[in-house]
Amino acid sequence: MRLTSLFSVALAATTALAFPYTKSATRDSNTTVGPENGHLVIVGGNLKSEAIYQRIISLAGGYNASIVVVPTAGGEASYDQNFSTAITFRELGATNVTVLHTYDPAVADTDDFVAPLKSANAIFFGGGRQWRLVDAYAGTKTETAFNEVLGRGGVISGSSAGASIIGSFLARGDTSGNDILVGDHTVGFGYLKNAAIDQHVLVRNRHFDMFQILEVQPELLGIAIDEDTAVVVHGNDAEIVGSTYALIYDGGFWSRDGSGGKYDLPEKKFYFLKAGDKYDLGARKVVETEATGGDEL
């Protein structure tokens, strides 16, 4: 292991002490990996697909649903109601879109700030650096209100950094750079339990990066999603939507043509799922249907 990786692991241990608001203390105790109520829409970055936006709107309850966009990961000095993702939702027909942002956890812990979330049907976390979301919202009334959206049957969604924050383990959470997989922030918001989520995977040649996390926490399910592609989750049911692929790191291997094949790196197994494929998060196996037969990856 590289010295930087060793240093990162040490930082991870420090982080566990520095951030006592672990998700086991704040999440409900349901038995599914994803939410029993509501849906997750986890996007691998560079979201352009109108179909994915429309899926979020539909799952939230339609065009009159309350959608709260949280751009905090982006790191700009300030954001107004014309943040680009909010504009896109409005252009696609959503009529009740609010941008909510602060970097100050004291503000995030106030009733006035939380007020728009009390009636929200969907949350969308924008891209940037995922640790900024942790520093601003973890352990506050705002984080509690995010979780309550799912409890009401709503939607938690996010793209790029906003995808990684959805996992229980925070991939690329180091404040010094996004090339460190196990960094000084390792606890995500945990809407997808016992899982680490990476993004931009094919475009940025990140195929093997997830193994740096799994070396530290091998019990995790690794999911790496390419750009303009999403994993939609309810309970233990996951479905791939969008234009390219999601990669699954569950310790096993799956091939669309049904062959096991010879694997040159048996300890580095992963496989690809494409739009329409379904995955059982509880059993950690592909749901075999007619759609998963045929095309060879």
Rank of each mutant, 00 (worst) to 15 (best):
I156M: 13
L150N: 01
A16P: 00
I240H: 03
S159G: 06
V286S: 03
L3T: 15
T32Y: 11
Q130A: 12
A10P: 00
S29N: 13
V233T: 04
V241I: 15
E215P: 00
A94W: 01
G61F: 06
I197M: 05
L117Y: 11
R2V: 03
M1G: 15
F83E: 15
I56G: 01
A163L: 04
I223D: 01
Y245D: 05
S159A: 09
M210K: 05
F211P: 08
S159L: 02
V70M: 04
Y249D: 00
K23P: 04
I87N: 06
H234E: 12
F270R: 04
F83H: 09
G162V: 06
L133Q: 12
A136Q: 05
G167P: 10
K141T: 10
D226K: 05
R90F: 07
H39F: 13
F124D: 01
K262S: 10
H101P: 00
L3V: 15
G45E: 07
G45W: 09
S8N: 15
K278E: 12
S259V: 15
S84K: 12
E148I: 03
K262C: 04
Q54D: 15
I165N: 01
S164G: 06
Q199R: 09
I123N: 00
E215W: 02
Y63E: 15
V203E: 11
G93R: 08
A171C: 12
R2P: 02
Q212D: 14
A94I: 03
H185D: 13
K269F: 06
D179M: 06
G62P: 06
A163S: 15
F208H: 11
I213E: 07
I165L: 04
V41H: 00
D250G: 02
F272I: 04
I240M: 10
A163I: 04
P71S: 03
K48M: 09
G158N: 00
A10E: 07
P116C: 03
